[in-house]
Each structure stands twice: as C-alpha cells, then as structure tokens.
Amino acid sequence: MRQEALKVSPSSQPSMTKKQSKYDEYKRRRKILLKSQAYIVGLISLLALWSIWGTGFNLLSLVFGTYEILVFIFTDMFPPDLSVIGSLISPALDTLYMSYVGMVISVLVSLILGVLAANNLSPHWIVARVSRSVTAFLRSVPAVVWAIILVSGIGLGPLTGTIAIGLSGIGILGKAYAEVLESIDENQLEGVRATGANWFQVIGQAVWPQFKAGFVSWSLYKLDMNIREAAILGLVGAGGLGYYLQGSINLFQYKEAATAILMIFALILLVEYMTAKIRERII
C-alpha cells in the first residue's frame, strides 16, 4: 500500500541510478559519523579496559561496594552520635574561618595578578605571560597537595590549611579576574584617560564599576568552594572538621564520624545560602 502511494505521486519515479546515488550519499555521510562514533567508543572502551587491567578493578565490586557501603552507613554510622555536637562547634568555626581568611588572601593576591595578567591593563606582555603561568600552575595543583607539603613544613593546624586554600584560590581567581578585566569596555577607559586621569583614577572611575559584578560573584563562588576544601584539608592534618573526622574514623568511632559529616554538610549548605543572599544584595 505504501509502495502504491509512492507510484501515484508524480515526482516519485526517479531512475534507479539516481535513487542509488542518493542512497550512496546517505551511506557515505552516515559512514563518516559512524566512524567517528566508533572511534570514540573504541577509544573509551580501550581506556576502560586498560584502567580495569591496571587497577585490578572488578566490576562485581560495584555491586559489592554499593552493598558494603550501605551496610556500613546504616549499621555502623547510623544513628549519628549527636552528643558530640558540642565539641564539633569549635572545629566547624575553624573551618569557616579558614575558608574566609583563605578567600581574602587569594582575593588580594589575585587582584594584583589579575591586573598584571589582563592583556588590556598589563604593563608588559611578558609580565602578563608570567602572571598567567603562575596562576595556571597554582590552579592545576589541588589545595590538598599544598596542604600536605605545608603540614610537614609549618606543622599541623589551621594556619597551614588557610595558606593552602589561599594558594589554590589564587589559581582560580587570578584567571577569573583577568578574564573579567579583559572583557571590560575599552571606550570608557579611553574616555576617562582623555580627561587626564592618572592610573589609579582610571582604575577607580572606569575599571572598577565594570569589574565589580564579576569580582563579587567569583569571590563568593570561591568562598563556596573553600568550605568544601577546608572541610577535607583536615584529613591531612590542616585543622577544622576534617581533622576531627579523620580522628574519629581512626578510632572506629563511626557514629561520631557521621555527625561530623552531617556538620560538614550543614556548613556547606549554610555558607551557600549566605553567599547567595549576599550576591543578591550586592549585584
């Protein structure tokens, strides 16, 4: 019935060769796509096999591990021991302070590096390059790595965590600030420069108003991130809630550990809520 319908319609009697060539064209294009898909699927499969071979990962452990972690969470950690909340307040505040001070440090340093790295404000392109490389390097090394090195050098405690957070923050904020600065409107700079303003006046009158929104939202975003990082830095001895968590797990006090995790969870949500409020007010 379908075929009949085709024959009735006037333009549907192409010669076999034309039909064939159109189908070949479809085939050819389909092949290109399939080849590229096969290439990617193949590459991913190879990577997966190579990784399974290298790590000795057993796909069964996915099922097994899920089961084990559920058992662990629901029998060993549950219910959380809420009586330790009192002794958790001080580490929780430490985590908060570390995140905040770390953020301020990275904001201050990143402001300088950002201006130096932005193509339109940098005094010289070599300075911009160097500044970019420094931030790129700091960005690619996780805060925990800095914390590990600093713990052995400066010692245990929140100061170490603060510096580690500050360092890795410079990597992110330095790049972000530079990008925001590069996107500002040159005409306004020219306008203010034309009035004979000096460098500081140009920054204050022309750059800052355009930079403010990006500056505030990136800095607050970093504060959100810092809370997460600060919470885990303690695992390597850099103070705060993580340190308490590590301690209670080492002592097999899993119900206390559960409380610490809930506390971290609550702290993250609280700070995210506050930064969202501040962002709303300022922007």
Binding site: T55, G56, S61, F72
Partner: peptide, 12 residues
C-alpha cells in the same frame, strides 16, 4: 575514606 572502611585499601 568511607569506602576504604567498607571495602578496604587500594584503587577500588
């Protein structure tokens, strides 16, 4: 940290 306690050390 939790998975280590649940399934042991190593990459898994």
């Amino acid at each position: 940290l939790l998975f280590i306690v649940a399934v042991g050390l190593g990459p898994t």
